[in-house]
């Protein structure tokens, strides 16, 4: 480690230099993380219809995908679910976080509010299925939306709770002190000061709902499959480059949204 001391003059982040071969695990870990995804994206441009034999570059699978009515309908269903679940989960999750912060000091209650985000999807899915059938709710996109709101609001609550912890509690008191009523304070002070976290939480729920399979599989009706369910049924007859193309597109959407969420949370820290 000859140049260990040369940490660079004027570098703001202290990045270790001169690690040499010690960088290998880092590169290896990233390779392990992204190799499958890279393979999928590369293979979506494969001319051959056999998905694991590369014969040449082609964009043909993307138009093919766009003309598949099954896929288009699945995409539409998924978007409906994702938007509705995002709206519902964001509103309820924000209220949950604010309520928890304001009216309880119970750590247990806070943990319970986050549980749906952590407990196995399968458990939540089976529980929701039993609940929906026992109250006589017909399984449809509506039941998927309800199910996605359940775990989605836990994620929103987690993000917003973290933000509340960083917010000056006297902001709301100052608003009251200046003559604002409770509702005015909530809309003019509480929501704007939490807005970055609320938006980040919403984007998170949107991406999670977009590719959620297990819970949707259990709570969806047979005539309105969401995109992950459509893909699943296609894969049962073999993986085609068409599915690779679809995966690549979903990846693009998720990446964009996650980056946006991260960007927004970083903006708020500057505030």
């Amino acid at each position: 480690m000859p140049d260990r001391t040369r940490t660079g003059t004027g570098t703001r982040r202290p990045v270790e230099r001169g690690l040499g071969w010690l960088r290998l695990p880092l590169i290896g870990a990233f390779g392990f993380l992204y190799l499958p995804i890279a393979v999928l994206v590369v293979m979506s441009f494969n001319a051959s219809s056999i998905p694991f034999v590369w014969t040449g570059f082609s964009l043909q699978w993307y138009p093919t995908l766009a003309s598949n009515p099954q896929v288009l309908q699945g995409l539409l269903n998924t978007l409906v679910v994702a938007v509705a679940a995002t709206v519902g989960a964001t509103i309820l999750g924000t209220l949950l976080a604010v309520g928890l912060a304001r009216y309880t000091r119970s750590v247990l209650l806070e943990a319970y509010s986050l549980a749906p985000a952590i407990i196995p999807d399968l458990v939540l899915a089976i529980g929701l299925l039993i609940l929906f059938t026992s109250i006589g709710l017909t399984l449809s996109l509506f039941s998927v939306v309800l199910a996605h709101i359940v775990f989605g609001m836990a994620f929103v609550a987690a993000v917003v709770t973290a933000r509340i912890g960083q917010t000056d509690p006297s902001l709301e008191e100052a608003s009251r002190d200046l003559g604002a009523t409770g509702p005015t304070t909530f809309l003019r002070i509480t929501v704007p000061s939490l807005a970055p976290a609320i938006i980040a939480g919403a984007l998170l729920v949107f991406t999670l709902s977009l590719d959620e399979f297990v819970i949707a599989f259990f709570t969806d009706g047979p005539r309105t499959p969401t995109l992950p369910i459509v893909i699943y049924s296609m894969v049962r007859f073999g993986v085609t480059p068409e599915i690779n193309a679809l995966g690549a597109l979903l990846l693009l959407v998720s990446f964009t949204v996650v980056l946006a969420a991260q960007r927004i949370t970083r903006l708020t820290d500057a505030l």
């Binding site: 000056d168 006297s170 902001l171 008191e173 100052a174 608003s175 002190d177 002070i189 704007p192 000061s193 807005a195 505030l271």
Partner: peptide
């Protein structure tokens, strides 16, 4: 009341 943290609305 003028708060110790001033509680100015950041937005």
């Amino acid at each position: 009341l003028m708060f110790q943290s001033y509680a100015l609305f950041p937005h």
